[in-house]
């Protein structure tokens, strides 16, 4: 599904990604951990084609990501759902409109939008907040809207960049349950995180990056540096 083949993207020696090989299968749930500046964001940005690698190949599904023309990037991004630490909801749109927007971008017929958006909102558990603007919602609720937006078009891959970073532990676990559910429906989930507790409790594949290199890749308990507040 996702293949990083000797991918290098260095800003300067030791910063960025250095000769990374990773293979992620369809339907996997993967944690991407490592200290700040280790290369996690570079990994995500390369995956989103926000950056182009210096060398190496990135393949996602049928897409040769590093060879995509600018015109093709929007098309490619529609196959990938993205969730961010700061939610990145459109502030002047309601929860419903934020989710609907992701479908409008794809020129989905409005009948389908009216049918599907409420379904997704109820799946993430915020049907009753559909008409609220982001600033009227709690952090966990905003993140649920963001997740609804990310999955409404049935992406093959969901990238979650520290989705629980701004949330208290109880809310964070709610979000993890939701991501787990989405993964069970067959979506590949890649979650970047600092949250040691979550990573080690979930019992999933853990890829640890440090100084641009993969230093750990297994389901084993990972005790190395993860960055974040715990350190």
């Amino acid at each position: 599904m996702i293949t990083f083949d000797h991918v290098t993207k260095l800003y300067r020696p030791g910063v960025g990604l250095d000769d990374v090989c990773v293979k992620i299968d369809k339907g996997e749930f993967v944690f991407l951990v490592g200290p700040s500046g280790a290369g996690k964001s570079t990994f995500v940005k390369l995956l989103l084609k926000d950056l182009t690698p210096d060398s190496g190949n990135i393949q996602v599904g049928d897409y040769h990501v590093n060879k995509l023309s600018n015109r093709m990037v929007p098309k490619y991004r529609r196959k990938i759902g993205t969730v961010f630490q700061d939610f990145k909801l459109l502030p002047k749109k309601t929860a419903y409109e934020n989710v609907a927007f992701a479908m409008e971008v794809l020129h989905k017929p409005s009948r389908q939008i009216r049918k599907q958006v409420p379904q997704i909102l109820s799946l993430v558990g915020i049907s009753d907040k559909a008409d609220k603007y982001p600033h009227e919602l709690a952090g966990g609720e905003q993140q649920r809207v963001a997740i609804a937006r990310a999955i409404v078009n049935n992406p093959q891959v969901l990238i979650a960049d520290e989705p629980t970073g701004n949330l208290d532990p109880a809310t964070a676990w709610g979000i993890m349950d939701l991501l787990d559910q989405i993964n069970l429906r067959g979506t590949t989930v890649i979650m970047v995180t600092h949250a040691k507790e979550i990573v080690n409790k979930m019992d999933r594949r853990i890829i640890a990056i440090d100084k641009g290199r993969v230093i750990h890749d297994s389901k084993e308990y990972y005790a190395g540096p993860m960055g974040g507040d715990e350190e």
């Binding site: 098309k75 991004r77 529609r78 909801l89 002047k92 927007f101 992701a102 937006r149």
Partner: peptide
């Protein structure tokens, strides 16, 4: 500008 960034992440093309 945030809004524009978000639109790009959702996969909106430039004319959209």
């Amino acid at each position: 500008s945030d809004e524009i960034h978000i639109m790009r992440y959702v996969g909106a093309n430039n004319w959209f």
